[in-house]
Design a protein around this nucleic acid. Structure first.
Length: 484
RNA sequence: GCGGGAGUAACUCAGUUGGUAGAGUCACAGCCUUCCAAGCUGUUGGUCGCGGGUUCGAGUCCCGUCUCCCGCUCCA
């Protein structure tokens, strides 16, 4: 299957079956924004719930839900005000766009030296001043006036650097002036760091312990693309684990294993997972790996595990004046904890699980004239615990009271699972409809049910059936679904 | 932001030199049907992405704009 094919098919199926719709579609859509439909929100909630249980049903991890709007100083402390701004320059001739600082780094040694010497002569500055002059994006026009465009090779064709800050800005209260500016959080992590002391006290936690949170974050990306992968509004599932700095290597490895296992346990194919080790680290990190999934468009990060050191707590101590420290009663040590961060994209995970589940199977078919052929079965092999609907209930035919029995079974199961009743069309068609929705089990009431109260349970992936007594269905399905 | 492709029914698409908007699938109702998209009948559903313009007349030609896909660029 061609790569673009499969993305298009999944986007189309996602819409048709109610997983994902484009935001504001009737108005022509809003770039890079998507809505979860009835099945999508169910599946997304299942993913989040599984993560939440996995992370917080432990002795040493607490959950919180911090506010999206935070004090503006938070983002100064975190480095987002300074580092989340990218100065960009365009080549006027070939229209290629570059980040100013990366463009400078990419210059050959010879070219860099020449540029420096020329500027030094012209502006009559010493070495230190020249360096800061060059680094200041405001001087980009002057600095780049003799530089060749890496794309088209032309000389001195760059525009002035323009700043792109990736944080969404808004105002608190009715007056729109600079003293009222707040940002939509570009990551959920800071809401955890600033609550470190609160949670430690309230939860009576000792190191090592973690704080988990699921929530939306916003980045005003220059470009959105690849369906749910790069969007301006997205949801994160983050856990920040606070430790003694001397144990950082051990905990980093521990959480890396834990998080990879979670994806594998829920059906992500191992050959579609890759661990990408960062060689170039962000300003806050000592070690970083990405868990990547092989999407149809290529490898993409679905979770990052970072050793953020004491960077964030130290910075918040500095900016707020509150000591975000830990005192160990046993060893009488006082220190700023290190943080091992596990940061998963909920939306990206959803997309990975959806794509991972998609399959077009060739199945044997007997035609009405008795000849054999094959046909395509489109099926979502979603892990049962993530499947939006756990079971569908059908009367085999609409007579002899089978509908009533099927309705009663549906109502019984509904006390425990999300179930769906369907009596429209041939039973084979109903099975296939549920396959496309990823429903793992289909229960059919047939003539045998009328005599001995047993029904068939058909499993989605194998298409095999077993007979189960209708009063045992809840127990039977529970075992299959909750065994994660 | 640049280059290329696309946008017509819920989905996939057709629509001739400009002349009353189509098919298949899906959905719904009924018939038939005792286990994997069978068949028959009927029905719903579209100001052709949106906004202008040219024209007696625009899905079709022109301009603008939005969105999606691919490739660059970008992704602390």
């Amino acid at each position: 299957m061609a790569k673009t094919d499969i993305t298009e098919k999944i986007v189309s199926l996602a819409k048709r079956r109610g997983f994902v719709f484009q935001s504001s579609e009737i108005y022509g859509g809003l770039n890079g924004c998507w809505d979860y439909g009835p099945l999508g929100v169910e599946m997304l909630n299942n993913i989040k719930q599984s993560w939440w249980k996995e992370m917080t049903y432990r002795e040493n991890v607490e959950g919180i839900d911090a506010s999206i709007l935070m004090h503006p100083r938070v983002w100064e402390a975190s480095g987002h005000v300074d580092n989340f701004t990218d100065p960009m320059v365009d080549c006027k001739e070939c229209k290629a766009r570059f980040r100013y600082d990366i463009l400078l780094e990419g210059l050959s040694e010879k070219a860099a030296k020449k540029m420096k010497e020329d500027l030094k002569k012209e502006l009559n500055l010493d070495d230190d001043k020249i360096k800061s002059f060059i680094e200041d994006p405001d001087n980009s026009e002057k600095v780049l006036s003799t530089v060749n465009c890496p794309n088209c090779g032309r000389n001195g064709t760059f525009t002035k650097a323009r700043s792109f800050n990736l944080m969404f800005k808004t105002y608190i209260g009715p007056v729109e002036d600079s003293s009222n500016i707040v940002f939509l959080r570009p990551e959920t992590a800071q809401g955890i760091y600033v609550n470190f002391l609160n949670v430690k006290e309230a939860g009576r936690q000792k190191l090592p312990f973690g704080i988990a949170q699921i929530g939306k974050a916003f980045r005003n990306e220059i470009n959105t693309k690849n369906f749910l992968f790069r969007t301006r509004e997205f949801e994160q599932m983050e856990m920040q684990f606070f430790i003694n700095p001397k144990d950082d290597g051990q905990w980093f490895e521990y959480w890396k294993e834990q998080r990879i296992n979670w994806f594998v346990k829920h059906g992500i194919k191992k050959e579609k997972l890759n661990i990408h080790v960062h060689d170039k680290l962000a300003h806050y990190a000592k070690a970083a790996v990405d868990i990547e999934y092989e999407f149809p468009f290529g490898w993409g990060e679905i979770e990052g595990i970072h050793n953020r050191t004491d960077f964030d707590l130290k910075r918040h101590t500095e900016y707020s004046g509150k000591k975000l420290e830990y005192f160990d009663d046993q060893t009488k040590e006082r220190f700023i904890p290190y943080v091992i961060e596990t940061s998963a994209g909920a939306s990206r995970s959803f997309m990975a699980f959806l794509i991972n589940a998609y399959d077009e199977e060739q199945v044997a078919k007997e035609n009405s004239d008795g000849s054999k052929s094959t046909e395509v079965r489109t099926v979502l092999h979603i892990h049962p615990s993530f499947a939006p609907v756990k079971a569908a209930v059908f009367p085999l035919v609409n007579r002899d009271g089978m509908q009533d029995i099927a309705h009663n079974i549906t109502e019984d199961l509904r006390n425990h699972f999300r179930v769906f009743y369907d009596d429209s069309g041939a039973v084979g068609r109903r099975y296939r409809r549920q396959d496309e929705c990823g429903t793992p089990y289909c229960i059919t009431v047939d003539s045998e049910t009328l005599t001995n109260d047993s029904v068939t349970v058909r499993e989605r992936d194998s298409m095999e059936q077993v007979r189960v007594h209708k009063d045992k269905l809840t127990e039977y399905l529970s075992q299959l679904i909750i065994r994660n």
